[in-house]
């Protein structure tokens, strides 16, 4: 049997037929991962930038810790967030487990270290370039962080894309805290895991192809934006 070609033809018919269910799942994936990356951007990038600019005791330890956290298995993050959000956990009273909100929270934890680590590297390199100028102009370090975040915005797009890639493709965390509930918390990766475990490999690959397509599309948009921006600001 030629499983692969079967899978791809199924992927195309899935795309061409615009299956309503698949569209819903794709939309939820985008919303959950998009929000997580949004929070990752708001938290991770400034955090990384502060680490790139600031000079304080314990900074190196933090940097190593952050770089290590980039490889944190998503299942571990999922279990930790599960225990926090569980009814018997510290935030149990909010009843957030098995909701889209829980998935956003888990993925935020997942992408913040990654985005912060990339931002730290980018901003630290820029800081080496600008340190004397900014210090001579009497910028306080916090204001320098703001200036550098703005100045590195095009390179920081890489951090955002990396975060998005990680969030969209992880399955461990959303599976545990979302529960893969049909029509409620089922996203592309958990749907793929489910179809795989049902032995429906063609459908799994078809969904995987859709996921890849979505990620590629986002990257293409980002690439075009970045091209435009570099032309604008040399």
């Amino acid at each position: 049997m030629n499983g692969l070609s079967l899978a791809f033809s199924e992927a195309f018919s899935l795309l061409a037929g615009f299956d309503h269910r698949v569209a819903e799942i794709v939309l939820l994936s985008l919303q959950v991962s998009g929000l997580a990356v949004l929070f990752g951007t708001l938290i991770g990038l400034p955090l990384g930038a502060c680490l790139g600019v600031g000079r304080f005791p314990g900074r190196q330890v933090l940097v190593v810790l952050l770089n290590g956290c980039m490889g944190l298995p998503s299942v571990v993050v999922g279990v930790v967030v599960y225990l926090i959000l569980s009814r018997s956990g510290p935030l149990g009273e909010f009843g957030l487990l098995y909701s889209a909100t829980a998935m956003v929270i888990a993925q935020t934890f997942l992408v913040v270290p990654l985005m912060a680590a990339i931002a730290r590297q980018v901003v630290e390199d820029a800081w080496r370039d600008y340190e004397e100028e900014l210090t001579a102009m009497r910028f306080r370090w916090f204001d320098s962080v703001r200036v550098l975040l703005h100045d590195c915005r095009h390179s920081l797009m890489v951090a955002v894309l990396a975060g998005l890639g990680r969030a969209m493709s992880e399955v461990g965390a959303v599976m545990i805290v979302g529960g893969n509930i049909d029509r409620s918390t089922r996203v592309m990766t958990t749907a793929i895991a489910l179809e795989t475990s049902k032995g429906d490999l063609p459908l799994a690959i078809a969904l995987g192809t859709v996921l890849l397509g979505v990620i590629l599309l986002l990257n293409a948009v980002a690439y075009v934006l970045r091209q435009w921006a570099t032309r604008r600001y040399a």
Partner: peptide, 10 residues
Amino acid sequence: VFQQPKMLRD
């Protein structure tokens, strides 16, 4: 003014 002034991407 430094010998090699650095300019922001702006």
